[in-house]
Design a protein around this nucleic acid. Sequence first.
DNA 1: ATAATGAGCGAACGATCGTTCATTATATAG
DNA 2: CTATATAATGAACGATCGTTCGCTCATTAT
Lengths: 211, 211
Amino acid sequence: MKFESAIAQNEKNRMSEKLSRAETADARRKHIVETAAICFIEQGFHQTGIRDIAKRAGVSLGNIYNHFGGKTELIAEIATLEAEDLAELQEVLTNNTDPLAALETFVERYLKLCSQPEYAALTIEILAEAMRNPVIVEGFLTNRDSLLVALEDQIAAIRALSGGKPDIPDRDCAKFTLDLIEGLSMRIAFSERKPSKRELNSLKRAVKRLL
Amino acid sequence: MKFESAIAQNEKNRMSEKLSRAETADARRKHIVETAAICFIEQGFHQTGIRDIAKRAGVSLGNIYNHFGGKTELIAEIATLEAEDLAELQEVLTNNTDPLAALETFVERYLKLCSQPEYAALTIEILAEAMRNPVIVEGFLTNRDSLLVALEDQIAAIRALSGGKPDIPDRDCAKFTLDLIEGLSMRIAFSERKPSKRELNSLKRAVKRLL
DNA sequence: ATAATGAGCGAACGATCGTTCATTATATAG
DNA sequence: CTATATAATGAACGATCGTTCGCTCATTAT
């Protein structure tokens, strides 16, 4: 979740011109979501009060309800935004001059993303909420499924090159690959450290063995 | 978490004799923890009030504080109890007439345990709390580390038999094995279904490839 | 028999929760 | 400039939170 806007800062932002109403509203909205995410990471979803978010965002309490329907809408939006980070990773898998190399790059990138402690913390909060709120599940799984399909295709491409007869279906293989990366990520995130060279090498080898 | 007591029901329980004070206190304590676990599974940790637990356990509000220091002590105790379930699984790994078969049995058993929706739900709640409470982390990781060592030894034994030269350290291999099982478990638990034959076969194959 | 212990109880406390709403300020449209 | 729409505000609401407290009473120890 990077919340990069930078979208169309042309039209109205020339020479520090005043922003239009719609623009400031959008900016506020974004700022509130960002702040909420920070709060949820630091304190957890249920330990964070709307007042915490309002105070930290420099916004009045009531105004949050002008932009969002309520607290759960905030975590739902954050879940969607976090899932969108995965879209970027898919691009790594579409560059197919060397499928195996692309897979390795993907492993590195996805590990780097997931093992950020803030990312892991947010994921757990979202997961815990998703357990009891189908709406959050949907936003969370949509982009993930998309990533899974891309990974599955990539694995199929690699397997097609090597010509062997794999006894694990492409789809399962893709899921297992994500499992390995995410499992290692959690351990790294929980111990607040960076992945060691050994761990990264072991991971890459493990992924290759699944092919 | 099965909370089996059956400990020393001899001394005083002969012929439906009255229970001693210490015994009833222990039973209450146990009953409260069990009930708390059910509540946490159904509603989540922070959505559950002490009153919910008290009401459901058929116990007064204040009495809970006679048995427990507070709410976090409850989740901490539950975390420890859940971790103790893993101790049973270790036994599977100590029967070493056929190391590879034992590993397969372990995979099946651990998958069956983790993929119970209640187990998964509780795990996520504990994980979310552990993120901000080191005490919970400790109770959670102690038994898990023990399991990991047992699995590592098992893998070493299997590898010693086959005689190959594995390029993934035993320890990493053990971690990855748990990752694969737990990842699949989460998917199963989230979709509220049982693992298919295909999934289980894929898992076993994946685990073997790591060896 | 009497004293000490601690399980059991529920009212009460202060704090905080998510949300609503009447009100004010401000940007846009006519 | 005036009218309108909406962003922004914070007091207020009712509910619920975790915890404490004084108390009763059955069991255990002396």
